[in-house]
């Protein structure tokens, strides 16, 4: 496997900051907006975004939740290997709220399709936006696009994009793995 660093160090931090400022442009003080991190890896990005927003807007009350989409996947029993669920934790209703779905990598769009289904359980949102750190372009299986993108990369199917987080993996970085 060949490793290629796409994003790390200072550039990683700047990207997160930029995403936060873009969010503030559309959501003001977040009084009617909620952040929803998609399990398992989107929750790291969501909590990082929240921390960063708190720095910029110390007065804002920012609501955050974790959403597990396992039971809403479209490949259950069609793919080798199990999909073990993670926990969902959303202790508020999203009725008439502006929902910002957050995931680390946007690829085929199927996870987001499942998330759109799963989120409806908690109410009818006013609108739903999508924020992703890495957008793998030209790889979509469904008509889905992100509203806020950290970095766009062009990849082929066999490649893997991995986002590592300080909290879980000791370092913040985005890596592209390709077979030799």
């Amino acid at each position: 496997m060949q490793q290629h660093h796409i994003l790390d160090g200072r550039k990683f931090q700047i990207t997160i900051k930029r995403l936060c400022h873009q969010l503030i442009e559309n959501h003001n003080d977040f009084s009617n907006s909620v952040l929803i991190g998609i399990q398992p890896r989107g929750v790291f990005l969501a909590s990082r975004i929240k921390e960063e927003l708190k720095q910029i807007l110390p007065q804002a009350q920012i609501k955050i939740g974790n959403l597990d989409i396992t039971f809403f996947r479209d490949d259950f029993r069609r793919k080798e290997g199990m999909h073990l669920p993670s926990s969902t934790h959303i202790d508020f209703l999203i009725e008439n709220k502006k929902v910002i779905l957050i995931d680390d990598v946007l690829w085929t769009g199927r996870t987001i399709r499942a998330a759109l289904d799963a989120i409806l359980v908690f109410g009818r949102p006013q609108n739903v936006e999508l924020l992703t750190l890495v957008d793998r372009r030209y790889a979509r299986h469904l008509p889905i696009k992100a509203d806020y993108v950290g970095i766009q990369v062009d990849t082929i199917y066999s490649q893997k994009v991995i986002v590592r987080w300080k909290e879980a993996d000791t370092e913040d970085q985005v890596i592209l793995l390709s077979e030799e």
């Binding site: 039971f71 809403f72 669920p85 926990s87 209703l93 289904d117 359980v121």
Partner: peptide, 26 residues
């Protein structure tokens, strides 16, 4: 342990306002 772990996530599901998930629809 796997069954009990999974049951814990389903316990959250059955306490939601809408208690249904589509996993076994086929």
């Amino acid at each position: 342990e796997l069954i009990l772990y999974t049951a814990n996530t389903f316990k959250e599901v059955i306490n939601r306002p809408i208690k249904k998930v589509p996993s076994l629809r086929d």
